[in-house]
Simulated assay, not measured.
Amino acid sequence: MKVLHIVEALGGGVTSALREYISATSADAEHFVAGRPRPTHGTGDDLGAPSVRELPSKLSPVRMVAAVEDAVRRTRPDVVHVHSSWAGAYARASLRVPADRVVYTPHCFGFERTDLSRAHRLALYRAEHLLARRTAGVAAVSPREAALAARLGVRRVAYVPQVVSLPGWALRERAAAAEQPGEHGPRYVTAGRICPQKDPAFFAATARELLRSRPDAEVVWLGGGTPQDEERLRSIGVRVTGWIERSALLGELARADVYVHSAAWEGSPMTILEAAELGVPVVARRIAALESLGVRRLERTPSALASTAEETAKDPQSAGVGLDLAAVHNSAAQREALLGLYEQVASSAR
């Protein structure tokens, strides 16, 4: 089976997720990638695909559709797996991309964005509803995303749990950090691009509460954004690393006391899974996607999130890691769900 992945923005969590998809199904499918790299958001990941074709960095939507069509024509795939909203729109808008071969992973639907007006979100919902007619299946990253896809009328919907693969050194570093109580205050960490989705204002308000309660605490944002956004966080005492590769991120994360997630909307954030897999307690803002994933310690306000983070730092064992990875988020479950959807789509398209 040939699978062509179309990725409009190749970087960050989407790249990490794609790496796991390819790894989980490589014994049964030959993978190709056509993507537009984000050089400033590289993860250092090797996708493991035999062919990674770069889409042009600056093209109009019309020419981007043509570039996607060219990738499909050259590859002649059994399945066209499109990732995120823009790639989903480019591929499904083209009549030359067979609709009965398209698998779509939104990685969070655009109409979930809370920084847009109600009218804008409604327009995005209607666009997704129309494009659902040209979608053979949705590989959803959370139960929430699966429910939304079914509501849109997609014919086949599969919940494909996200999975993280951690190097042994990261697990050993975490074990060493847990065995050696620090002489400093608690270390609170978050990760991702500083952007509206991650709601840096919500995180900043949480950080102020944490630092007011414990001036010796360390609050860290692993990632970067505009110079102005980074400076706003630094001005209240947050250490901002700038964009770093995944290996550096894991090293920082392994030494954290609590992972604090402030996003206003999400699909299924890889950083939460990485923290949980390392055994770092997770506390997060209460949003629908994280509720559906079973994250346990969720709060609605910065003050409540800070309070829960402080309690968790004092007694991490009582909090658990915030997510039951073993039962759902493993390679076998991911492979079964993803390959099952691929096979259904490829068989029906023959």
Rank of each mutant, 00 (worst) to 15 (best):
E209D: 15
R53L: 14
S84K: 00
S165M: 09
R208D: 11
Q162M: 15
H41N: 09
Q317F: 15
G168M: 09
W169Q: 13
M1I: 04
R101N: 08
D315F: 15
L338H: 03
E179T: 11
R234N: 12
A146I: 11
L341D: 05
A71P: 00
V238F: 03
L273C: 00
P61Q: 10
A313T: 01
V163P: 00
L166D: 07
E311A: 13
G88R: 02
M1G: 04
L124Q: 08
S23E: 13
S247Q: 13
R335H: 14
P200Y: 13
A346S: 08
H129G: 05
L325G: 00
Q334M: 14
V163Q: 02
R19P: 07
T25H: 05
I236T: 11
G223Y: 05
D257K: 09
V328R: 08
V52Q: 14
A140K: 02
V14I: 12
H261N: 13
V154I: 06
A313H: 05
V14T: 03
G242A: 11
S117C: 10
S26H: 09
T105E: 06
P77F: 03
V280T: 01
P161Q: 13
G224M: 09
Q162N: 15
M1Y: 04
V68W: 01
R286I: 03
L47A: 04
S26Q: 08
G322Q: 04
R73A: 14
L233A: 08
A332W: 10
R74C: 07
G48N: 09
A146W: 13
Y188Q: 08
G279T: 01
G294I: 02
E173G: 10
H329Y: 11
S331W: 00
A191N: 05
P281T: 12
D28H: 14
V321N: 07
A289Q: 09
A349L: 01
V219T: 06
E20T: 12
E30V: 13
R246W: 04
G225N: 07
A34S: 10
E291F: 09
H107Q: 03
A136V: 00
T43Q: 04
V68C: 06
A177H: 02
A289T: 05
S94R: 05
